[in-house]
Nucleic acid binder design. Structure first.
Lengths: 215, 215
DNA sequence: GTTGAAATTAGTACGAA
DNA sequence: TTCGTACTAATTTCAAC
C-alpha cells in the first residue's frame, strides 16, 4: 500500500505488485534468492549480505513468511544417500469423474514426490522415488493400476537429473540489482505484471552467479 | 563402524548401510524427516523432538551434512506469489552427439527448474516456470529451438500441481519408529538394501503424519 | 529504516556414565 | 556412543535515534 499512482517514478526500488499479497521490491528478491540457496543462514548474516540493517532484515523476513511468499524451509536431501536410487515418471490417464479419488490415492503413497495435472496426451504426470527398478514396476502394477480412477499408465525411467533447481525466481534485472545503477526507464527493465521483453543476455548474465546451490 | 557381523542382533536401532556413506539408523531418518519439513528448526528443538541429547543431535546433524546426506537448506517459495504463475513441461528430442551443448544451454536458462534425461519416446523432460503462457511459447521458439542440440520439442502446460513433496524419504518402518516396538525379525521390517516386501498398510499408516509439510 | 544496548539462545568442549 | 553440564560466542529482541 502506497504505490498506487506512478510506479515508474518512485526511484530505486520499484515494487512490483503481484496478485494480492505484499509488494515485492528488489531487496525482497535478493532475500529470497539467498534464502533459496542457504535456508539456514542467520538473519544477521542475511542482512549483511543484502546490505540492509538487521531490523530491516527481520521485518522483511517476517513479512515474507507471514504473507506466504516463503511457505517454509526444507533440508535438501541426497536421494541416493538415503536409499532411493531410482526416479521415474509415470504418465496417467485418469477417469475424469474420479479425479478426487486419484488425488486421495496419491496422497497415501509416500513414494510419490510430485504430481502435475497436465494438458496433452495424458492427464497427469507423477514422479516417484524408489530403491530399485523392481519397485517401480511394483508400484505401477500393484498400487497405481488398482486405483479405479486410473485408466492407463505410461512409465519412463529417469536416467539422469541434469538440472535440479527448486524454487526458481523470476529472471530479469529487478531480481539481483539492489544498487541504484539502473535508472527506472532507461534500460530494458521489465516490471512484473507487464509483458515486456528483456534481451536474453542481460537478464541472465547477472543471474548466473546467484543461482548456484551452496549450503 | 562397528556393525559388521550381525546387523539383526544389534537390538533397537538397526543401521542400514547405503552406498559408501555413513550408516543411517532410524534416528537419522527421524532427523531428516523433521529437517525436511522444518529446515530452520534449532538443533536444540530438533534434539527434543527426536528424543536425544543436544550434543548427540549436533553430532548427527553435522555428520549428515558432512556426509552429504543433507546437501543444504532451501526456502520454499510460492511461485505464484513471486510472479511465476505458469509452469510447463517440455519434452525434448536431443541430437545424441550434442548432449553437453544441450546441458550447457539449459544451465544458462533461469526459467528452467528441472531437467531429467529419460528413457522412452523423448530424450529429456524439462520443467519451466514463467510469468504467463506467452512466455512459454517464447522460450520454446526463441530459446530452445535455436539450440542445435534440440531436434524437436513437445510442450505441455501444467494446469495444477496436485502434489509437491520435495525430498521424499524411504517408506517403511525403519523410518519413523525410534522406540523398541518392533523386534528385529518378527514383523515385515525391510532392511535398506534388501528387497523385501512390506504390506502397504503397515509402512504407510505411520508415515502419513510425518509427511505433512509445515513450517 | 538505522544503530546500539540487554536478554535469550545457539554452538562448543569438556568429563562421566 | 551418548548424555549432562558449563562455558563462550552468537543471535534475536527491544529500545531510542
Amino acid at each position: 500500500m502506497g504505490d498506487s499512482s506512478s510506479p515508474d517514478a518512485s526511484g530505486d526500488r520499484r515494487p512490483g505488485r503481484i496478485g494480492i499479497g505484499l509488494a515485492l521490491d528488489s531487496v525482497h528478491f535478493k532475500i529470497l534468492d539467498i534464502l533459496r540457496a542457504q535456508g539456514r543462514i542467520s538473519v544477521a548474516a542475511l542482512a549483511q549480505r543484502v546490505g540492509i540493517s538487521r531490523a530491516n532484515a527481520y521485518t522483511r523476513f517476517e513479512a515474507l513468511r507471514a504473507d506466504g511468499v516463503i511457505s517454509g524451509f526444507s533440508a535438501r536431501i541426497d536421494h541416493a544417500r538415503v536409499g532411493l536410487e531410482i526416479c521415474a515418471l509415470i504418465f496417467v490417464t485418469v477417469r475424469q469423474e474420479l479425479w478426487q479419488q486419484f488425488r486421495n490415492a496419491l496422497a497415501r503413497m509416500p513414494e510419490v514426490e510430485y504430481c502435475a495435472v497436465t494438458t496433452g496426451q495424458h492427464d497427469a504426470m507423477i514422479q516417484i522415488r524408489v530403491p530399485d527398478v523392481a519397485a517401480v514396476h511394483r508400484l505401477v502394477t500393484d498400487q497405481l493400476s488398482t486405483i479405479p480412477a486410473v485408466r492407463a499408465t505410461e512409465t519412463v525411467i529417469i536416467l539422469d537429473e541434469a538440472l535440479r533447481r527448486p524454487y526458481v525466481l523470476p529472471s530479469g534485472p529487478d531480481f539481483t540489482e539492489t544498487t541504484p545503477a539502473t535508472p527506472p526507464g532507461s534500460t530494458g527493465a521489465s516490471q512484473f505484471g507487464m509483458t515486456r521483453f528483456i534481451r536474453a543476455a542481460e537478464g541472465r548474465a547477472e543471474l548466473r552467479s546467484s543461482t548456484v546451490e551452496d549450503d
